[in-house]
Design a protein around this nucleic acid. Sequence first.
DNA 1: GTAATTGCAAAGGATTTGCTCTGGT
DNA 2: ACCAGAGCAAATCCTTTGCAATTAC
Lengths: 148, 148
Amino acid sequence: MDISAKTKDDQSPTAGGERLTKQKKVLAQIIDSSDSFQSAQDIFALLRARGENIGLTTIYTQLKLLAAQGGLDFMKSESGETLYRKCSTARHHHHLVCRGCGTTIEIEPPGFEEWADRVSKENHFYDISHVIEITGLCEKCFPRHSKY
Amino acid sequence: MDISAKTKDDQSPTAGGERLTKQKKVLAQIIDSSDSFQSAQDIFALLRARGENIGLTTIYTQLKLLAAQGGLDFMKSESGETLYRKCSTARHHHHLVCRGCGTTIEIEPPGFEEWADRVSKENHFYDISHVIEITGLCEKCFPRHSKY
DNA sequence: GTAATTGCAAAGGATTTGCTCTGGT
DNA sequence: ACCAGAGCAAATCCTTTGCAATTAC
């Protein structure tokens, strides 16, 4: 039971170095060449078909990693799969505004940008822009916050 | 191999009869008394804690059934669970508008209303209302749809 | 009595983990 | 050589299915 040498939380920034493997290149290429959302399984199947065999585990690991680093957008499909797509460059924030005192809180609808992109594309709309505005009364401005 | 008698798609309205079981009542009560989204597992745990033991399978079955009949709203959590909540009465539509010719297409951001409710509640905002506006150029109004 | 329903046990499907081997630098 | 990364096998988690026992009507 040697528990001494286990500095598991070695978060040294840009520590030793990240390695550019063949698998990473292939994945990067696939992600980059698609504008739509794909699941790890999708990519796995695609690669098998294409001849190149990369382990499912690796795909899962890399996609998750990339998403965590903010390099990929992701969302859940209705069937339960996690779908990934290259990051939408834009991405701005939206706000929750109190119509009483003007207090503003920054909010981020999960997957909204992606959804908007997709719906727009499905309907053949281009050069998109959007606005989300949620207004309400904050705690201080709300008459009498009995229940809730 | 008797495939004859299988009228599986027996959609006869109020056909033979649906049975009101103890389990269904309990579930209805639980769903009705909560304003937030809960997973089958959540409800299962809740019931165990409360003493009443209803099978997980039954909970899954009923929730899915109710959702299919439109009696429940549902969404996927980030962790992959399906969350259910009693139907929101309100619910209005939003639009995708072409700023060139004004063409309007009705759209429905999946889970947006629920999300807005939740974020608002989390930030202690009440008496909420919101607007979503996506504008763009439809196929006819877009200069030259080269790529995309 | 009879079909609808329950719920255990087991199957399924997505994703993660343990761990050893491989390959990048 | 050294360690990040690959990937097989097995484990997890949520959900569905098979099916015998139960129960509402």
